[in-house]
Design a binder for these strands. Structure first.
Length: 481
RNA sequence: CGGGGCGUAGCGCAGUUUGGUAGCGCACUUGGUUUGGGACCAAGGGGUCGGGGGUUCGAAUCCCUUCGCCCCGACCA
């Protein structure tokens, strides 16, 4: 199979040879992104951006269905606002971009380009919230943020990226906690059902949590090279921000109280996850629900029948195009060239139609995920495509789940653990005493970090992997992006 | 910020050791033949050799300087 793959797609470095290069080859050659003139910045090209738009549309609906409304807050945040929450500043200060001048004039107060919007949004919430009747406030925004990272990689960590950030304010601690978990569940559902990526939901350790949060919850996915990717986070902010931004309300009991807050976000990093979870040596494999093109029509056009075939293909596009995202490739390249091109671009289904098919009243459908070929009567086309797209979506999730299962191990012995992390990687379930010293030591020894303390999972028997002390939690370790 | 690598046509590279008219493959353009797994023939177009300075009769090549990108670390909700 590996050899066959190579014969088909010579554009792409194989994953076994150099995973990092494979990733870069794929995203550049499929025209998802290109490097921009500014270090760490990327251009998201139409093919990549359409994918993002499809993702946005599905997630945006879920966000609205859970009662949130979209708004937009400014890109610039006054330095004084960022300074207010001590942990928050400390966490973000090293990676913020500063605006110091307007034109040629030095600003009286420096502005930060938002690395996240808690502070500016909280400053507004303080104005807007007076009474328990004003709560909850449930706002989301889609925007760009900037974090001056030292090491960057397209989609996974860029200086500027696109995301959504939800910011909510609640009357009680319970409500804020409920919101935090509700949105984590929204993310899990979105990523698993729409992006076909299985995730582990869990709690971050104190060391790994968001700067300024009480608790951070995460969805963690396993990439094709065995490294984990934090794919979305939901934070219970407690009253940390409310207290420093003075977000208070008069409750029913006539007491002035601080609100309880949550914030949650996913970013274009998810595109990186799609690429690395589903991709193979032929290139991308995009889940049907978000694929920019779900069905690509490749007409086989010998000269004598060119017009007839093209006409037929275009007719199909008109009828089926109402229901499915489709594209027709009538460029003057050989059919084989086009097959490879669209496979590299990860289109779930290819529809071939040529003179022979027209005679028989059929078309040929080929699945990207399995390579299976189907000869389908024209009258069955609509229902067959619908069925196949659903099957592909499901199969992609199952394949990814199987990969994760095969690359998740349980471990009680530290030496075994080190070996696994060094050789096979993947997720390792192990016991932890809950102390940061052990967490640190494991990271120093192996570069693996605690990805999360899983929700809804039984604890293992045994003691702490590292110190042998009493185990407080069973956690997932992995090397992460 | 440390270590390594690379900047020559859109992309991938050779040429640099030993200075002497800037090349190859792919891509691109035109015409023709082709089209069910990356077709073929022919004719074309395209370069401040990352930037600046120096040495020299002469610099892609030697020297100095500078900028950028990639990879691996360190750092990083």
């Amino acid at each position: 199979m590996a050899k066959k793959d190579k014969d088909f797609v010579k554009e792409v470095t194989s994953r076994e040879e150099d995973y990092s290069q494979w990733y870069l080859d794929v995203i550049l050659k499929t025209e998802m992104v290109d490097y921009a003139p500014v270090k760490g910045c990327m251009v998201i090209r139409p093919y990549g951006f359409t994918l993002w738009e499809n993702m946005q549309a599905l997630l945006d609906k879920k966000i609205k269905d859970t009662g949130h409304k979209n708004a937009y807050f400014p890109l610039f945040i006054p330095e004084s606002l960022l300074q207010k929450e001590a942990d928050h500043v400390e966490g973000f200060a090293p990676e913020v971009a500063w605006v110091t001048h307007g034109g040629n004039e030095k600003l009286a107060e420096r502005l930060v380009v938002r690395p996240t919007s808690e502070t500016i949004i909280c400053s507004m919430y303080a104005k807007w919230i007076q009474s328990w009747r004003d709560l909850p406030v449930l706002i989301n925004q889609w925007c760009n943020v900037v974090r001056w990272e030292k090491t960057t990689r397209p989609f996974l960590r860029t200086s500027e990226f696109l995301w959504q950030e939800g910011h909510t304010a609640h009357r009680t601690e319970e409500e804020a906690q409920e919101e935090t978990l509700k949105m984590l569940e929204v993310y899990r559902e979105f990523v698993e059902e729409d992006l076909a990526i299985p995730v582990i939901t869990g709690l971050k350790t104190d060391k790994e949590k968001f700067a300024g949060a009480l608790r951070t919850y995460t969805i963690e996915a396993l990439m094709g090279d065995g490294r984990a990717l934090q794919s979305g986070t939901s934070h219970n902010l407690g009253q940390h921000f409310a207290k420093v931004f003075d977000i208070t309300f008069l409750d029913q009991d006539d007491q002035l109280k601080y609100v309880w807050q949550a914030s949650w976000g996913v970013s274009t990093r998810l595109i990186g996850a799609i690429i690395m979870v589903h991709g193979d040596n032929r290139g991308l494999k995009i889940p049907p629900k978000v694929a920019p093109v779900q069905v690509v029509v490749v007409p086989i056009m010998p000269k004598k029948t060119r017009e007839v075939v093209l006409e037929k293909a275009e007719a199909l596009l008109v009828t089926l195009g109402e229901k499915f995202r489709m594209d027709i490739d009538d460029r003057d390249y050989s059919p084989g060239w086009k097959f490879n091109e669209w496979e590299m671009k990860g289109v779930p289904l290819r529809l071939e139609i040529g003179p022979k098919d027209i005679e028989k009243g059929q078309v040929v459908l080929v699945r990207r995920d399995t390579g299976e070929k189907f000869f389908v009567k024209e009258e069955d086309l609509d229902s067959t495509i619908e069925k196949l797209l659903a099957e592909i979506q499901d199969n992609m999730f199952q394949m990814a789940l199987e990969f994760r299962t095969q690359n998740t191990t349980q471990c009680e012995d530290y030496e075994d653990f080190q070996k696994i992390i060094a050789d096979r990687r993947g997720f390792v379930r192990a016991n932890w005493c809950g102390h940061e010293q052990c967490e640190e030591k494991i990271k120093e020894d192996t570069k693996a970090t605690i990805r999360c303390i899983p929700l809804k999972e039984d604890k293992m028997q045994g003691s702490c992997l590292c110190c042998g002390g009493e185990a407080k939690e069973t956690v997932y370790f992995a090397r992460a992006y």
